[in-house]
Amino acid sequence: MASSTHVLCFVNNKGGSGKSTTCANVGYSLSSLGYKVLLIDGDMQLNLSLAYFDEDFVLETAKSDKNLYTAIKSQKDLSDYIFPTRYPGIDMILSSTLMSSIEYDLFTKWQREYILKNGLKNILTENKYDYILIDSPPTLGGWVMNILCASHYMITPVEASPWGLFGLANLFDFLNEIKYVTPDLQMLGVCITKADSRKSYLKQTLSALEELRHTHVFETYIKVDSAIEWSQENGRPVMDYKKSSRSAKEYLCLTKEVVERVTQ
């Protein structure tokens, strides 16, 4: 039976572009819209894990054998690595700081680009989730290839800066080079993050992005908002921490756009 689960990844090789924050908050927003969500923290920085669990639990899990690193290294079914979050309808596979060495572990494995995809096979067959969201590290190596191969759609958060756009161009060059291993992956869109409307450069970014052809840019862009840092400080998605905040509303709008494009 074909799976009805949509697998989305958040990828950008530039660090600090807002991948984990966007993944965490789109995940929460999807749940608030009634969808069942599985989050997968694919980054050794553990930020997505920290958005849903307290630090002690995140670090304890990172050292245990119940994290993504162990599952990938031993090529296990990921069903056995899922933890429920405090929110009904949102589960997570947590990361480990050992993900930093995953490239070495992948090196000797046969068809190493498909290990994550294989690990998700049973979860997809069960159709337990409407969406699986995968956060990725700021690299473009073999592990990110795994994430891209396991995903149906890709969202790229990008910071409104010249170097942000330069990084975006590098990412597209990379995608072009690996297209033969990810023929079914669809770029769902580029999402502008950390937009500061007080800076005149935002206008330049928006103007530059208008010239993109065949690449969708989400209409909603996420503006700088201290509520995001406060939500991180408190280990919660911003929609739960402060529902009335500007960023909470923006993430909900972005999520509605995502759903619309996925179900188109």
Binding site: D173, N176, K179
Partner: peptide, 21 residues
């Protein structure tokens, strides 16, 4: 500018993908 050049590179990459496909 760097941002315009980057957009140009992205368009080129996407169009090459379509061509290869």
């Amino acid at each position: 500018s760097l941002s315009k050049k980057s957009i140009h590179r992205i368009n080129k990459a996407v169009e090459t993908q379509d061509f290869e496909k």
